[in-house]
Nucleic acid binder design. Structure first.
Length: 638
RNA sequence: GCCCGCGUAACUCAGUGGUAGAGUACCUCCUUGGUAAGGAGGAAGCCAUCGGUUCAAGUCCGAUCGCGGGCUCCA
């Protein structure tokens, strides 16, 4: 049999007999140190195990265990290791489902009569360590799909059987480690001794194949790293992230509260949070005015008939609160603002010359959310959307969408967000509207995105039944991404509400309607903002921009004067003139993340100045109150 | 809604069947101190709610409500 040539990318190359495994080739081709770090290789671009035989000329690229791909492999193998440990401990009681690597870790789903609880972790981890020390190899075997199906069926692993039945491939690969055989594409670490640094983190329920009508499985989440230091860094990072949790900061900073007596998912904005919200709303309104929008206000309830006409009763009733009777007529709380804006539209006749019409509203809506879905400010039952509806002609669609995206990014940027994921959702299986309409608007969304130079992913079939949409998601600190912005084209409501305008031909036409929200909901947006800034808001939106602190009672009167003066100039200032040490007052202001502390002792009183301490601990030279006003005004410009 | 975990003072948390605890915050007094906690004292709890087991329940069991982590769903 002819030799084959194996070369390392950008490195040496050598001839080997056919069937040489990657690990052996590496021994000759790369240094010991690099080899030790190599967990798998890319062979001609495909990831393979170190133990996989090579059969043709190959360029291999070592994958380091601490690289992104290497960690993925490590974690995936650790998931298998955990499954093996669970199998050894609980044997027949447990059926295995799936166990992939995920961002920052891995999980494995198990089916067991009595679900796992964190109390089981210690035992499972101990067993895992035992198996690591046993240095069990991960060995790969290929077999036909039918053969594999029969094998798993014999073992009673019905979940694996189901997975196999849904695959197209004729041959599949299995990995064996110890007594555990798993259906798996691989690759894996060569043996369990690679898996020394891991930790089980939490248990959770999850539905088989994500379908709530199917079996509830118990999922164990864990993580694994190439070395101990990285694991402890990761755990520290989790701890830090917890400190930034908007629910914790919301309480600490006195921004908002949620109370049993009021009800779950209902937000009470405390003075500081309310002020923060007002600042955001004011900015939002100003920007919309500048960009040709008009502001509307509409009610919170409407006759049930309205929701019948809009179709919400048919398509959305499970999210709506029950009807209430008023004077023998049924009314219902609004889950959306659109029908009201249409009401405004239909109050008057319209001509094509008026278009585009851009109406916006900070509209408070109420939606029933399942209790398990509620989450601080991020997912609530009553929330205020920064909603807008744009009515236009087909020839204006693309430009309008471009304008919306432009304003959207502009506003997100102002708030300090420049990292987001953009999705374009296309026509679902069930839909209304003509194919032409769908084509035109999907195309318009796509072109606007491209013109704006935005990278996006397509979510096929994930559009709303009434039209395609663009979603923009912002990531929070724990890496969870939250949908904020959404831009949706709607063919349905203009039809249902018989909306018309007079065209240049004198005939009636249907306008195109675009729904959009930039921040999504103020609640969620502020939740993300709190975490983004860890509560240390930029000066322009800080509810308390400055706090004046006296050193002794002797300066109290002077402080009162400066306080009134600055307040009158529009600075959001508070005072702390208590009989406490300066240290103590600084600490409190610091914990409240107040951007500027104005410190006044005898020196300042004498000179008619204030000394300024920034929240990062640095001091600015003493200045007059007037100079401070200019200073703040300058910093707030955006 | 589903799976697991958790509800003790305003907050953060101790308390494994036998008289409810700490720190912080709060109130009073002392202290007037130049850049992240000065000192002393005081008040504060139907141990989420309802039911059960027990001579005895914050503690064990069940239900309900709420919260947390996921799943599902979504702004």
């Amino acid at each position: 049999m002819a030799d084959i040539r194996v070369s390392v990318q950008d490195g040496e190359s050598k001839a080997f007999p056919q069937g040489v495994v990657a690990a052996e080739a590496l021994k000759e081709l790369v240094s010991g140190k690099q080899r030790k770090q190599t967990v798998a290789v890319k062979s001609n671009g495909h990831l393979i195990d170190l133990t996989t035989p090579l059969t043709e000329d190959t360029v291999i690229e070592p994958v380091a265990v601490d690289s992104e791909i290497g960690l993925d492999i490590l974690r995936h193998s650790t998931a298998h290791l955990m499954a093996l440990a669970v199998k050894e401990l609980f044997g027949e009681q447990v059926k295995v489902a799936i166990g992939p690597a995920i961002e920052d870790g891995f999980y494995y789903d198990f089916d067991r009569e009595q679900p796992f609880s964190p109390d089981d972790f210690e035992r499972i981890e101990a067993k895992m360590t035992e198996l690591v020390n046993a240095r069990l190899p991960f060995s790969r075997k290929e077999m036909s799909r039918d053969e594999a199906t029969r094998w798993f069926a014999r073992m009673g692993e019905q979940y694996k059987v189901e997975l196999l039945q849904d695959m197209d491939a004729d041959t599949v690969s299995l990995y064996t480690q110890g007594a555990f055989v798993d259906l798996c594409r691989g690759p894996h670490v060569p043996d369990t001794s690679w898996l020394k640094v891991f930790k089980l983190l939490r248990v959770a329920g999850s539905y088989w194949r994500g379908d709530e009508k199917r079996q509830m499985l118990t999922r164990i989440y864990g993580t694994a790293f190439a070395d101990k230091k990285e694991l402890s860094q990761y755990l520290t990072r989790l701890e830090e992230a917890r400190k930034r949790d908007h629910r914790r900061l919301g309480k600490q900073l006195g921004l908002f509260t949620i109370q049993d007596q009021i009800g779950p998912g209902l937000i009470l904005w405390q003075p500081r949070g309310a002020l923060l919200r007002r600042l955001i709303e004011d900015h939002w309104k100003d920007e919309h005015y500048r960009h040709g929008y008009q502001l509307l206000y509409t009610p919170h309830i409407a006759r049930q008939d309205l929701w019948k006409t809009s179709g919400h009763l048919d398509f959305y009733s499970e999210n709506m609160y029950s009807a209430m009777e008023i004077d023998e007529v049924m009314y219902q709380l609004k889950p959306m603002n659109c029908p009201f804006h249409i009401g405004v539209y239909n109050a008057d006749p319209h001509s094509y010359r008026e278009f585009p019409i851009r109406w916006c509203e900070l509209g408070t809506v109420y939606r029933y959310e399942r209790t398990g879905a509620l989450h601080g400010l991020m997912r609530v039952r009553g929330f205020t959307q920064d909603d807008a509806h744009i009515f236009c002609r087909p020839d204006q669609l693309e430009e309008e969408i471009f304008n919306i995206i432009d304003l959207n990014l502009r506003i997100l940027n102002t708030f300090g967000f420049d990292q987001y994921d953009v999705y374009l959702s296309t026509r679902p299986a069930k839909y209304v509207g003509s194919d032409d309409h769908w084509k035109l608007s999907t195309q318009a969304l796509k072109q606007a995105l491209e013109k704006k130079g935005l990278a996006y992913q397509i979510d096929p079939g994930e559009g709303v039944f009434y039209g395609p949409k663009i979603d923009i998601k912002i990531k929070d600190l724990l890496g969870r991404s939250w949908q904020c912005s959404t831009i949706q084209v709607d063919f349905n409501l203009p039809e249902r509400f018989q909306m018309t305008y007079t065209g240049d031909d004198g005939a009636d036409h249907r306008p195109i309607m675009i729904h959009r929200a930039l921040m999504g909901s103020l609640e969620r947006f502020i939740g993300v903002l709190i975490e983004h800034y860890a509560g240390a808001f930029p000066l322009w939106m800080a509810p308390e921009q400055a706090r004046i602190l006296n050193i002794t009672d002797d300066q109290a009167e002077y402080c009162e004067q400066v306080y009134s003066q600055l307040r009158a100039r529009g600075i959001r200032i508070e005072k702390d003139l208590r009989n406490e040490k300066l240290n103590y007052k600084i600490r409190e202001a610091q914990l409240m993340k107040v951007p500027y502390m104005l410190i006044v002792g005898d020196r300042e009183k004498q000179d008619g100045t204030i000394t300024i301490r920034r929240r990062d601990g640095e001091n600015l030279p003493a200045m007059t109150p007037e100079a401070f006003v200019d200073f703040v005004t300058e910093e707030c410009r955006h």
